[in-house]
Computed example of a mutant assay.
Amino acid sequence: MSSAPPAKRRRTESEDEGDQPVIVRSTEYWFDDGNVILQVQSTQFRLTRSFLAMHSPVFRDMFSLPLPPDEPLVEGCPVVDLPGDTSQDWTYLLRAMFPQECYNPARPLVAPICAILRLSKKYDMAGLRRHCLGLLKMEFPTSLEDFDKQTLVWTHFSIPDTVTTTVACVEIINLARELGLYSILPGAFYKLLDDEGHKGLLGDDLAKLNDKQDEVACLKAYVKMSQTFADGPFSWLGAQSSISWAGCATASRCASFRNSILIQVLLDHDLVAMQLQPWASGAWDNTQCASCLSKAKASFDAARKDVWEKLPSYFGLEDWATLRKMDFE
């Protein structure tokens, strides 16, 4: 353990005193009965060693070591400098460790969950890590069956009005790359493309991906999925459909219906965003004869499953089974 800020180089005559960061105490997590101070960037948190050790074997092992006899103290407490962390991440983590309400919110914000997962992995806080991993894997599942259980655009997280889906997905993709959480990448990439269709690819948000190859992969995936739309789940609507409509009792009416749906899809929807949309039972079941309906649904379901299996490959990723094995746990 070391005394508050790490040693700084000597300032030159041209440098101003204001260039040095001002060390501040956390307004939320400075406890008078604390016996250790964590310094993260320019913020100090005064906590208890026993509490940190209870949650983290990393801190437990650290605190088991005796202090050097000349260790500088601040208000009688040793100061532990945590390089590489951010004070905002630690504030999110401590809010989870010191909840002010009895129950966690059903749909937390993305930023705190990313921060807590990042630090809980680094400091081996198993319970917090499992909770965050569970939320991310439920939001971005690896099976179509679990994907179909999603009831909202964001089922397990809440997104403020000031944050777009693109921004939230970029944060999650960056975290997944940083920690090695590969199985959520296809779903996060797809949700990013599904952010109002191609609008999610415009502007500066996509450029915030840490790996520029991910930015290129998103653009390539959008083009490829758009080009293969005619062979996907909606191929049953096309004039060149491979389905035999023999047995249709109302051929003219059913064909007219299919044509009207195709026009609506092409005009009103983003082609990539529609690739994994479920069958619209209320809109498509009632105006086709039983024979056409059965064949159309079978074709739609089979093609949709095929899109799901191919989804990782659109972004240059391994198959689902391999991605699950590659996860850090």
Score class of each variant (00 low, 15 high):
257 F>E: 10
192 L>D: 14
208 K>L: 15
281 S>W: 05
265 V>K: 15
138 M>C: 14
214 D>I: 02
310 K>F: 04
293 L>T: 13
56 S>T: 09
103 Y>L: 15
39 Q>H: 01
3 S>V: 05
244 S>V: 00
204 D>L: 08
31 F>E: 08
291 S>D: 12
202 L>N: 10
314 Y>H: 04
282 G>H: 05
306 D>H: 05
311 L>A: 04
44 Q>S: 11
154 W>D: 04
109 L>I: 02
173 I>H: 13
1 M>Q: 05
312 P>E: 03
145 E>Y: 09
31 F>L: 09
151 T>L: 10
257 F>G: 10
317 L>K: 07
321 A>K: 12
110 V>I: 13
82 L>C: 08
170 V>Q: 00
7 A>H: 03
56 S>K: 08
56 S>M: 13
254 C>A: 08
8 K>T: 10
220 K>E: 15
65 L>M: 11
233 P>G: 01
114 C>F: 02
252 S>W: 00
196 E>N: 14
152 L>N: 12
21 P>E: 02
238 G>N: 08
227 Q>A: 12
46 R>C: 15
20 Q>K: 09
294 S>L: 12
13 E>S: 12
124 D>H: 10
224 K>G: 00
208 K>F: 09
211 D>R: 10
138 M>W: 07
325 K>A: 12
260 S>N: 15
226 S>I: 01
127 G>H: 13
66 P>A: 15
28 E>N: 14
203 G>R: 05
306 D>L: 09
241 S>W: 00
91 T>K: 14
233 P>L: 00
161 D>I: 04
174 N>S: 10
186 P>V: 04
177 R>S: 08
179 L>P: 00
282 G>M: 03
18 G>K: 10
142 T>S: 15
100 Q>D: 11
202 L>G: 08
276 L>D: 14
102 C>H: 13
323 L>I: 02
224 K>W: 01
239 A>Y: 07
29 Y>G: 00
300 F>P: 03
1 M>F: 05
175 L>A: 06
204 D>W: 01
162 T>F: 07
45 F>V: 09
168 A>M: 01
324 R>I: 11
56 S>A: 07
40 V>M: 07
40 V>Q: 09
292 C>G: 11
52 L>S: 13
123 Y>A: 01
289 C>R: 05
178 E>W: 01
6 P>A: 04
23 I>M: 12
157 F>Q: 04
163 V>L: 11
145 E>A: 15
324 R>T: 14
170 V>I: 02
276 L>T: 13
317 L>T: 07
308 W>M: 02
213 Q>N: 14
285 D>K: 03
125 M>Q: 08
247 G>A: 09
97 M>E: 10
303 A>S: 14
327 D>N: 04
67 L>H: 02
317 L>H: 10
59 F>C: 06
269 H>K: 11
310 K>Y: 05
7 A>I: 04
150 Q>C: 07
328 F>E: 07
125 M>N: 09
174 N>P: 06
307 V>Y: 06
216 V>R: 14
24 V>T: 15
